[in-house]
Design a protein around this nucleic acid. Structure first.
Lengths: 171, 171
DNA sequence: TTCAATTCGATTGTGTTCAATTTAATTATA
DNA sequence: TATAATTAAATTGAACACAATCGAATTGAA
């Protein structure tokens, strides 16, 4: 329940996903410690991601959207029309995930799905008027999420920067 | 594909999950911008989490463990015996997720599952000798994950600290 | 004590997530 | 031009996540 987070103070034992790979490690740090939950970086990343998405749920429920559908709609509000492949690149999701999500959005009439006439392999997703209208409802989502978690502005910014570095999009 | 990450430079528009809630925002920042993927904090968190877990897969495949099974075993290597509820608190997972994971680990004979004699509602998960032995194989996992992603030690530490702050375990 | 409320884990149903495979379309090469 | 290689989505199968619900056990209040 109340983990002690030993790593907090002993620093530098936390290096990208392998504490043991770090340079100046404290003497008490054993190879076995590298298998402790408290020394992992991936685990809190994974847990924090799920915890925040959990906060989205009641808000998105009012729009009858799941979180995945919501971020897909974010892409649509910006792009208006985009291929499944390009949306996948933006969201780091493959067609196995996106196909059912986009079919669900099509069923709700927020998007249309049609093959490109230039290249029949490509499926173009286009936003509908109903999809555009949904954006007005969605404006309240970021509003309502605010204050849900309390990070200092600089912490949020630093987190943002590091996450995009992990995603290979150094900014 | 190549997102521009506008937020990078305009800073302070990224605040916890609602850019619009920030104080000194740049003049060009509209409420609609709060719905852009580039101004989200949750999205890169979610994407980075999945990207890193993807890196674990080929390594964990050699141990015939999934990532969820792996973090459950991490708890077992530390605790030896624990209730489903307490493991759930440690991993931020509920019984709906843990029950099948623990049954899979039981099938592989890494753990046993027995009701507590003191309180029959409580299921105690205990590590077996085979489960203990697996730890020696698992020592290579953090090793192999090292260098998978390139963060500076201080970045990793700062990320760790912020993530635990999000998880409500300020360290 | 007795019955209502609570707790714990399991189950169910929905919706991802992703590797691997398949199919159709396009491009490149012999 | 044939045909081989490549590409884009869809499909399939396995494993999560999680809300909601259930049943059994325990606790608490009248």
């Amino acid at each position: 329940m109340n983990t002690d987070n030993k790593a907090k103070n002993s620093n530098s034992n936390i290096t990208p996903f392998c504490p043991t790979a770090g340079a100046g490690q404290s003497e008490s740090f054993t190879p076995e410690d590298a298998l402790k939950l408290d020394y992992q970086l991936c685990f809190p990343l994974y847990a924090a991601s799920r915890e925040i998405i959990k906060h989205y749920r009641p808000i998105l429920d009012e729009l009858d959207l799941t979180y995945t559908q919501y971020i897909a709609m974010m892409v649509m509000w910006e792009e208006k029309a985009i291929s499944v492949k390009d949306m996948g690149a933006k969201l780091f999701l493959d067609s196995g995930t996106l196909t059912p999500v986009l079919k669900a959005l099509e069923k709700k009439e927020y998007v249309t799905r049609n093959r490109s006439t230039e290249d029949e392999r490509v499926l173009i997703v286009e936003i509908t008027e109903k999809g555009e209208a949904l954006k007005q409802q969605a404006l309240k989502v970021p509003e309502r999420m605010a204050g849900c978690i309390s990070l200092e502005p600089m912490e949020a910014l630093e987190l943002y920067r590091i996450l995009y570095k992990i995603l290979g999009k150094e900014v």
